[in-house]
Nucleic acid binder design. Sequence first.
RNA 1: GCCGACAUAGCUCAGUUGGCUAGAGCAGCUGAUUUGUAAUCAGCAGGCCCGGGGUUCAAAUCCUCGUGUCGGCACCA
Length: 602
Amino acid sequence: MNAIAIKHNDEIIDLQTAKELGFEGEQIHLDNSPEALEVLRHSTAHLMAQAIKSLYPDAEFYVGPTVKEGFYYDFKTSADIGEGDLKKIEKQMLSFAKKKYEIQKYEISMEEAREKFKDDHLKQAVLDMIPDDKVSIYKQGDFEDLCRGPHLPSIGLIRNFKLTKIAGAYLGGDSKNEMLTRIYGIAFADKESLKAHMTMLAEAEKRDHRKIGAQMKLFTFREEVGAGFPIWLPAGGRLRARLENLLFKAHRKRGYEPVRGPEMLRSDLWMTSGHYQNYGENMYFTKIDEIEFGVKPMNCVGHIKVYEDELHSYRDLPIKYFEYGVVHRHELTGALHGLFRVREFTQDDAHIFCRADQIEEQIIEVVDFVDKIMSTFEFDYKMMVSTKPEKAVGDDKVWEVSTQALKNAMDKNNLVYEIDEGGGAFYGPKIDIKITDAIGREWQCGTIQLDFNLPERFKLEYNGEDNDKIQPVMIHRAILGSFERFIGILTEHYAGEFPMFIAPTQVAIIPIADTHKEYAKLLSDKLIDIGADAEIYAKNDSLNKRIRTAEKTKVPMLIIVGDEEVEGKTVAVRDRRTREQYNLSEEEFLTLIQTKINEVNF
RNA sequence: GCCGACAUAGCUCAGUUGGCUAGAGCAGCUGAUUUGUAAUCAGCAGGCCCGGGGUUCAAAUCCUCGUGUCGGCACCA
């Protein structure tokens, strides 16, 4: 097999460049190694551009990089291009590929490039970003493009690719700029890998929480209700209640007190907090008797009012309030996405009011709490320290101190984190917990935010040792983030096959004939007594049909009761996965369920 | 919000170039059957074809404005 590029000083260098500079190094062959795919996909992007240019001669091209799972190219044309045109472009790509044009490289000066692309405003924008005074041009057939490379030696090597989606994208990723057309694609070294990739995508789609949510009747949305307002169905209600109960106990063990603030508060309070000025566009407002109220987008102000209800001593700190707080936020229509992005959601929210010297231990305690829960669900997650955003309240100095405090707490405890510059809340820096979902997407769930600003704005205080008034520090935190998003992620994570301790229904009971219904009901009652939910499948359907129906609900355990079971006070258990059967005495069965439900606590 | 696509029964989908009473499977209801481990049989019911305007002798089908959904971008738990 011939080389398609070489590796020189850990950099992928294409053959064109290697020849020009006389570089030598380890050969890269056309296989599915990350290096080979990088080159292949980049050249496929160019081949796509060539095809687009031939079909839409007025097309101007911006950038066409490789990304995690493929490549894309951003361009602009006066023609209307839709999904239906992807096939046409693919076909054109293939016909060019068959001509096996060599990919040639040459260099010109920045000045020459400016002149060469003088009528192409997108190329000018690309040139703006290049600091060098020389740029390289890659040419295949009569198509040429400004590019840094690396590229294949010939487009004839490109065979196994697919254009996957067409979308709009802002020039330079800035919503103030014009919108370009973006086409995404994927390419592999061989046909089988491409096919496997497409199968994998189809499999991932089957896990989609929106699909499973509908199948399992967890939740729904209705046009007449409004976009972004989820409706929780009975099965979803049961699952959610299990999660809420587990988490409630976990909070109580850690010294949190349940509280509850109102759904809306007067606008002057939101001005004091700064939400009105900094978060107003995401809030919903209404008027009551001529006074403006804001529906809460966060729970902190309510908790501040709880704190203000009595005087506090330094001895009482930290004080921790928690609430399953329902919040409303005006998300843009295009951002809405199943349970992952909604306009009304419930946070597992808490606020810790503490002394400055308690910050570190409190943060570490929360991080431990997060880790306990994430590991219970076997989630991979990472932590990001987010710093001061553009829109922010408070002194830069305060921001510096609090950001450093977060980092110190993490560093001292050898916790690994990344930095998200400018990603903080408007009132303080934060540590975000990002979960990786089933398809590799990252979702922000938990968050730990350090806030010196709201205590200052609300003039919060406690009595110190010398009876002096001292301002407490606030830590805002959520662990799941929101029940909506978290349950969405859980659904995809388990593909709907929830573990016993949170499943909407723990046991499906199938009585063989009407005469066994009574025993089924007795078992169901006993299950409820030990905190499990059961569903009896006693409809006038065949036994086989009812087993099929029950299994399709993804219930963790299915038991069948007939004459033998009623007589011997036993149950016949059917394993969901293996379809194997075994018998348990009623007592063994109940103990097993109880153990499985209780084996998890946070 | 922006770019592109889509919207037919509770669900998944058919419905020809605009043309007779809009179809199917599953789910639901009724009856028969009383079942030992993944679909018993028969019958019935179910639709403002997303909503408003328009074009046309005639609209599920064409145009237009909304609403919602999907894929991205931008924004975020």
